[in-house]
Design a protein around this nucleic acid. Sequence first.
DNA 1: TCCATATTTCCAATATGCTCGAATTATTTG
DNA 2: CAAATAATTCGAGCATATTGGAAATATGGA
Lengths: 117, 117
Amino acid sequence: MESKAAVNMLSALGHEGRLAIFRLLVRAGPAGVAAGEIARTLNVLPNSLSANLNVLSHAGLIASRRDGRSIIYKADYDAMSGLLGFLMEDCCAGAPQICAPLSAIVSGGMACGTAKA
Amino acid sequence: MESKAAVNMLSALGHEGRLAIFRLLVRAGPAGVAAGEIARTLNVLPNSLSANLNVLSHAGLIASRRDGRSIIYKADYDAMSGLLGFLMEDCCAGAPQICAPLSAIVSGGMACGTAKA
DNA sequence: TCCATATTTCCAATATGCTCGAATTATTTG
DNA sequence: CAAATAATTCGAGCATATTGGAAATATGGA
């Protein structure tokens, strides 16, 4: 991942509303969630939601498809994985003590879903 | 980690200059780097650097100490680890396929430092 | 075709963030 | 104390982001 792409993703996620949207989509899984349902769940105006979905989409963090009248959004897992990997590159190179706790979270015998940083 | 703290960190890192600063500090390790040396290395004005160091500091991503005339900045590894863990919480809960590749990067027999996302 | 639903686009007001020069504070050295 | 170095703070100008109302587009159904 290039630094510029990482900056775009980080700045897209550095916004309370957008982070909430993205987390919702990640939790929802590959099936995704319709824009209207996101708006109802998070209690935001549809036009604000649309603008924020656009930012996340341009950053490459989410993708969309039309289904009837609705537009379904879903998280782009490769992008998310790429971003996390990019952030870990540095710490692994300079400071393995960052990676160590993550090893424990992500694979050190802990079940996925019990991770509490 | 609270969502608000994560937003602050993400928005702090969502800026090309600040991401470069942070990456430099993480690579530098626990010893840290003096502000002046950061400015020379990254070729930025000292007052802009100071403003950006302040943002990173307020986000909790870096810490500073005075050493003579210089002020030494270093990455806060716990904060970084906490942020990465926070981002992984969701993916583990909703989409284990994000965590899987990270497992490989961070601990799946790969040496730290060879991670390329 | 007409209407309701779903979402986006447009627009203007407001707010926030960024950059850079100049002045200020803190520290060491002569 | 005066001068030099290191870094921060201040302030103005400019750019970008955010918000919310209103209008426009797209789809499905009567």
